[in-house]
């Protein structure tokens, strides 16, 4: 039986990729963000995950609006990166774990989540930047990944409840999978931000605090919000908190918060990091 260690959740803002490339970790603007990862590095060194389930949203690299899956799961031997159009450096392909991918796919479909399966899948900055943040000196990272892509781009989006339930189904499938692998969850995106419209620059720290608190042991509290309310409270791209809700569902009933970092602003975003240990 596979063991779920816990999760790291982090923002995935594209400008972080540029800051990494320019080695700006000690720059006064960036230091409060990057310093939040010291604790993440020691937690990962202690936990030694074998495989990472990455919950994220694609930003128009692998999926276009011609075919937009609500939930998609990668089942490839490896995942390549590619030019996203705005100058973030690509990284070497990241190893997949197709056996675990298919075990998750079989489990969630049995649980009535009819996902799209991808034997070829490009990963974008929402995967590669968090991997670079977690394993800054080890690229490609010393883990295999299973990418889980959530539609946060084109409404209708899956509800917060559906996202939490989807995460729970992934968790059940991992637990049922017969290997001794240690599985970590990496949820990316958010927290509150809005890039588009006259309300661009919107940030809501009070709601972010509510989300970070609820994600520890009362994620059901977030399912009372409709998608429209989440747009209002967290911004049009703050909706990426749905990825965090899926990730939280994977952990099971109880979790312990091991670390939190929160810093406004990184680019136009309230950046956040949270480590939850599954208990």
């Amino acid at each position: 039986m596979s063991k779920i260690l816990g999760s790291v959740s982090t923002s995935h803002i594209p400008s972080i990729g540029k800051a990494i490339a320019l080695k700006l970790q000690q720059d006064p603007y960036w230091k409060p963000f990057f310093d939040g990862f010291h604790k993440v590095h020691s937690w990962i060194a202690e936990q030694k995950p074998d495989v990472v389930v990455v919950v994220y949203n694609d930003h128009g690299l692998n999926f276009f609006l011609d075919k937009m899956p609500t939930f998609a799961i990668g089942a490839a031997e490896s995942y390549a990166t590619a030019d996203e159009g705005w100058g973030i450096a690509t990284i070497a392909p990241v190893a997949g774990d197709p056996k675990l991918s298919w075990a998750i796919i079989e489990g969630v479909v049995e649980d009535e989540f009819d996902v799209v399966t991808c034997q070829e899948m490009l990963i974008d900055h929402a995967v590669t930047i968090p991997l670079q943040l977690l394993w800054p000196d080890q690229l490609p990272p010393p883990v295999k990944i299973v990418p889980v892509c959530i539609n946060t781009v084109q409404h209708p989006l899956p509800t917060a409840k559906r996202c939490l339930d989807f995460g729970k189904a992934i968790g059940r499938a991992i637990h049922a999978y017969g290997s001794n692998q240690k599985v970590m969850v990496l949820s990316t995106g958010g927290l509150s931000h809005q890039l588009d419209g006259e309300r661009a620059g919107f940030i809501n720290a009070d709601f972010d605090a509510e989300c970070l608190h609820a994600l520890i042991n009362t994620p059901e509290d977030l399912t009372k919000y409709s998608i429209h309310q989440l747009v209002e409270l967290s911004g049009t791209q703050g909706l990426e908190v749905l990825n965090w809700i899926v990730g939280r569902g994977i952990l099971g009933a109880k979790a312990e918060e091991k670390h939190r970092n929160y810093h406004i602003p990184i680019s136009n975003t309230a950046s956040a990091i949270q480590i939850l240990q599954a208990v």
């Binding site: 128009g60 276009f64 609006l65 030019d83 409404h155 588009d196 309300r199 998608i227 429209h228």
Partner: peptide, 28 residues
């Protein structure tokens, strides 16, 4: 929501050509 247009079915249909052009810009 003031100053906010959630990207839904109306926008998806209306903006398809523009977004499709923008998607092409992944390629140098």
């Amino acid at each position: 929501i003031p100053g906010t247009v959630p990207f839904g079915p109306t926008e998806a249909m209306k903006g398809y050509a523009l977004n499709r052009m923008c998607y092409s810009f992944n390629a140098d």
